[in-house]
Design a protein around this nucleic acid. Sequence first.
DNA 1: CCCGCATCTGACAACGTTGTCCAGGCTCTA
DNA 2: TAGAGCCTGGACAACGTTGTCAGATGCGGG
Lengths: 374, 374
Amino acid sequence: MLDATSSYKIMDRRTPVDDRTGRRTVPETHSRADRFAGTRYGTRPTMKDVAARAGVGLKTVSRVVNGEPGVTPETERRVQEAIDALGFRRNDSARVLRKGRTASIGLVLEDLADPFYGPLSRAVEEVARAHGALLINGSSAEDPEREQELVLALCARRVDGLVVIPAGDDHRYLEPELKAGVATVFVDRPAGRIDAHVVLSDNFGGARDGVAHLIAHGHRRIGFIGDMPRIHTAAERLRGYRAAMEDAGIAVEDSWMSLGATDPERVRRAAEVMLSGPSPVTAVFSGNNRVTVTVIRVLAEQSRRVALVGFDDIELADLLQPGVTVVAQDAAALGRTAAERLFGQLDGTLSDPERIELPTRLISRGSGELPPAD
Amino acid sequence: MLDATSSYKIMDRRTPVDDRTGRRTVPETHSRADRFAGTRYGTRPTMKDVAARAGVGLKTVSRVVNGEPGVTPETERRVQEAIDALGFRRNDSARVLRKGRTASIGLVLEDLADPFYGPLSRAVEEVARAHGALLINGSSAEDPEREQELVLALCARRVDGLVVIPAGDDHRYLEPELKAGVATVFVDRPAGRIDAHVVLSDNFGGARDGVAHLIAHGHRRIGFIGDMPRIHTAAERLRGYRAAMEDAGIAVEDSWMSLGATDPERVRRAAEVMLSGPSPVTAVFSGNNRVTVTVIRVLAEQSRRVALVGFDDIELADLLQPGVTVVAQDAAALGRTAAERLFGQLDGTLSDPERIELPTRLISRGSGELPPAD
DNA sequence: CCCGCATCTGACAACGTTGTCCAGGCTCTA
DNA sequence: TAGAGCCTGGACAACGTTGTCAGATGCGGG
């Protein structure tokens, strides 16, 4: 699928085939330079062309381009002139091939359009930039196969490192890459079946605190709407919910929990069910930002006031009536920490896989402090 | 800055230097394969290694890897076995060097963390993926120099095409790249001083409609808070505001306009000034999503009801009291259109630079329909 | 005037892959 | 059974760059 050249038409930009002999004509340095005198369309000048035009050797051009010492100012000027005239730009593919490092890192996340990943991605990018590396990224769309496809495509590009927000739960396919020295950090969710660096939020603790907050405000019938438990974060948050309930000595009823509802329609139905059952909930804990948004809509339609605490902060949460109380994770910090650990591995500063958990923060804004309305 | 290898320490992974002679020892095919028997850390097997292990020629491995015909099932099996055993992964850098196309495109935008760019970026990615290409992206942080640095770094990587949301207003530095055949599409804002494909929203029309909407609801003293007019979108939206006012025969007072306020603090002050002057506004038109968010906060603190229409949709706008009326642009459509035009160029289907303007959509939710409260 | 030295330059191989072309072995037919 | 033709496999060059090393050049001193 992600084949380097198969998908769109490519124009062959190599040396032409001689009609009579059928052999490739080897263009002389001289004649290539001539071609670039008029800056032809579709082919790029190489150092060789620059060298020919400047009347110097190939390596001298390389030296100028890379700012290496040992070039007379006069020579340098001539070379620079030729570079500008031809519009030469060093080919990093060739450079990479020679040097071994690409100075680029890959980021595989679930969906760039999700507001949670924007800041995370940006943070990774900033760290990469500080280390002189570019960021290549892709969305797995929560599909393990697509994740693997992406990761391997990135490895084929020889990215120096990978930041992965995993969709799958088996990452043994990465073993050869790890052995080959591709620095890897998993973020937001742990790696499956391999030993790797991981940076997580304290999903369990955050969820437990959020639910405990509701309990502290008098609630006992509390609903939980979250993602599929095969997703680590969802499972941890569910565990946090259960723990808080158990700590308070509350028996959880099945109808209070909805797992795997992700699209607005299903979340809506799930919320309506737990609000209207035989023992309707007086508060809801929602498992992520997308769920929270839908739940807010449903609660707004209810006649009675239902309390709400959401995992993940959402923009404008403070402007709603009531403000939305959330357990906020710091997406930027996740990204930054992960990227820094990645470059730590590349520097050689860091080696043994470690699991880092970043704290969450409960932000009270009103919706979580509503008393139960039975 | 974005140098391929300078910034972090690199481990030299090439052939070792012989201590006595000082010359590089050329490892034989055979001995390399031996090294990979134990899958050493830090070096990757090549096709040569696979070939040696499978006891076939180099090109045969290439054929298997690329699914080319002309290999016996038995041979193929042996090769595949060697590939799996060694953990071989084709080196796309070398492949790119040979083939000329990288099957990757670059995306330069202002800030990945801005919710407007998430969906745009994702749309570009989806189109790229459909064409078998990867996406490399970077944020310019609204800094023209950084934009240029990024774009040129991407060109050095030999991306096949570029989607650029420009920060600067002079893109002549791209001329050699365009000549060399790098497909380029500018999005959201036009290119400066070069002829290129552009995909825009109808900023002028959208703003004019938004302001006309306020006028239609009885407002005459309408404020405008926007970004610096050197940014094309900001200038166009300002022009739309002026046009609507003029069409209605309303003379705009200087104190009603704030240009260049971007950070929350300045937006807040600007809003407060126009709400408290000698002829206070009864409605505000805000020039982009970030401004809108701040304006909402300020208006929420006012005792009188002030109408508001914002450019750009914002999440949860419908849940606020009142709902926020906006002029929405379709970020995903912008990204998709741009990417499709990019691949159109690469296919050869498309050639002459063209300027496309996508319509905006006025979404009434309440805040824009409030009557003037003098 | 020549030698030694430092400085600058360029020829060449190598990075890992793919395209071309040829050789050898096989099958099929006359 | 010989010859034609096909199929498979491999040798080799080339992509554009950088590291190595040796050659050229210039300069000062003996």
